[in-house]
Design a protein around this nucleic acid. Structure first.
Lengths: 149, 149
DNA sequence: CTTTCTGCAAACGATTTGCAGCAGC
DNA sequence: GCTGCTGCAAATCGTTTGCAGAAAG
């Protein structure tokens, strides 16, 4: 089965950004991007290793750093034991996270437009008052996920 | 010099909540709350130990867990090396965080009213769509602080 | 061919924990 | 006085790193 055009586009982007930072395209790196791209939520290292046991844990950590430096991957830290990784937002679209306070799971949710507008307004007001120049923002809803209800 | 009435109220709350969870009031615990209450931003363990070198590091970690379980303290994890601690929001008022991507510092900022309203609307819409029942939210602006400009 | 990646195993470092003595109540 | 806190030092565990052989370009 041929790859979809979206996958081809993604692999093109991966190649470009890796080369731009002087890195090579390898099977491990493509597998990592493929995994993250297929997930609808940020993944932990154990989840990644479970899904691709042939990737050594140290290689996973190392490559996720490389991919993050290349601007392809974003690392998220919650109160959970493990960090989580997702594709950069310019590849997935802007979104926020629903974090379950019971089971610790993290779920993606598209950013509501009204909320984004309000953040923009607030950001400007804060810049005026404090001199803080925001580059981006992060909104988490913490609560109880459907599965834990 | 007598303690201010606010401090007395705070110590009363600390006593009540510690007792409610079967814990004792100790000098270390009061010192920790006092430090966090005086700060206008969440503090790291090194900052806390610097300010009160008589508290053993392990006691600081242990007591912050106790205070968190008592609902007095809130633990925050950023991408920085250390976790940060602040008083629970029902003691300080609802606020958000400005996180500097250069120096890693974290600064408190009061929650703008319009933004809170938009979050409330978005939360309801998300609950309807996904079944996620939000208990609270967290908004971080990531950017460059005044000092790093 | 040269440079960079990979896997293994060892190192690192923030946080946690066991234990013997001290303090809250 | 009994229970639970404190400090010290050792253990834990997610993450990072050194090194020798393998792959990318």
């Amino acid at each position: 089965m041929a790859a979809t055009s979206i996958d081809e586009w993604l692999h093109e982007v991966v190649k470009d950004r890796l080369h731009a930072t002087g890195q090579k395209v390898t099977a491990n790196r493509e597998a990592l991007v493929g995994l993250l791209s297929a997930a609808t939520r940020p993944l932990t290292i154990p989840e990644i290793i479970d899904a691709r046991p042939t990737i050594a844990q140290s290689s996973a950590y190392r490559n996720l750093v490389v991919l993050e430096d290349a601007g392809l991957v974003h690392r998220i830290v919650t109160n959970d034991d493990f960090a989580r990784y997702e594709l950069a937002e310019d590849l997935t679209g802007h979104h926020h996270h629903l974090i379950c306070s019971v089971c610790g799971s993290v779920q993606d949710v598209p950013a509501p437009e009204g909320l984004e507008r309000a953040v923009g307004v607030a950001t400007k007001a804060i810049a005026r008052k404090t001199g803080f120049r925001a580059q981006h923002h992060r909104i988490d809803l913490v609560g109880i996920c459907q599965g834990c209800n």
